[in-house]
């Protein structure tokens, strides 16, 4: 077992799909142990499952129910494999890089809140919503002013200043959209 801690800003660990896979494995394996174990020990299928097992055993492999089951199994396998391959968006971002070994990181949510609070002070902004993507920050501001272009320009400048103060290791480009309040 490694004694070094994991990096702060890393790819998602995919705990949810892994937990789903674990539960499916326990269910499938447990059912198999019950069925095959009973047949191995008693020479017959369990009474509660005998009818279902006989029905499945008598079904042709090229029949529609079998093909549907195979299709669902293949689809599930594809989803699981893709969830393992896709890098995903890290929940934390490395910021303030320096010459000290190690990382300084901030959560995506804190980063979005900080940018949002700075933007809310911009003249003309009624409220703002900020979400942090992999390489950009999406900002939606609502303003009662008619001159939305000026509000967008000021908002972009404030967002860039907020991001510059934190110096994210992966540059984040703000994308600003405005909505006029009537």
């Amino acid at each position: 077992m490694s004694t070094a801690p994991a990096r702060l800003a890393r790819r998602p660990a995919r705990s949810v799909p892994a937990a789903v896979l674990a539960l499916l494995a326990i269910a499938a394996g447990g059912t198999g142990l019950w069925l095959f174990g009973s047949f191995l020990l008693d020479g017959a299928w369990p009474a509660a499952a005998a009818e279902a097992v006989s029905a499945v055993g008598a079904t042709r492999l090229d029949s529609t129910p079998i093909l549907i089951g195979a299709g669902l199994l293949g689809l599930l396998g594809l989803l699981l494999a893709l969830s393992g391959i896709a890098p995903g968006d890290p929940g934390r971002r490395a910021i303030l890089a320096d010459d000290v070994p190690g990382q300084t990181a901030v959560s995506r949510r804190d980063l979005a809140h900080r940018v949002q609070r700075r933007i809310e002070h911009v003249d003309g902004v009624r409220d703002a919503r900020v979400s942090v993507r992999r390489r950009r920050v999406d900002v939606l501001v609502r303003t009662p002013l008619e001159d939305t272009a000026t509000v967008a320009r000021r908002t972009r400048a404030e967002a860039e200043a907020a991001l510059a103060s934190l110096r994210p290791s992966t540059p984040l480009r703000p994308r600003v959209r405005t909505a006029h309040l009537r």
Binding site: T104, S107, D110
Partner: peptide
């Protein structure tokens, strides 16, 4: 050898 810092804002 390593200093990791998580900042909560």
């Amino acid at each position: 050898v390593r200093v990791d810092l998580l900042v909560r804002l």
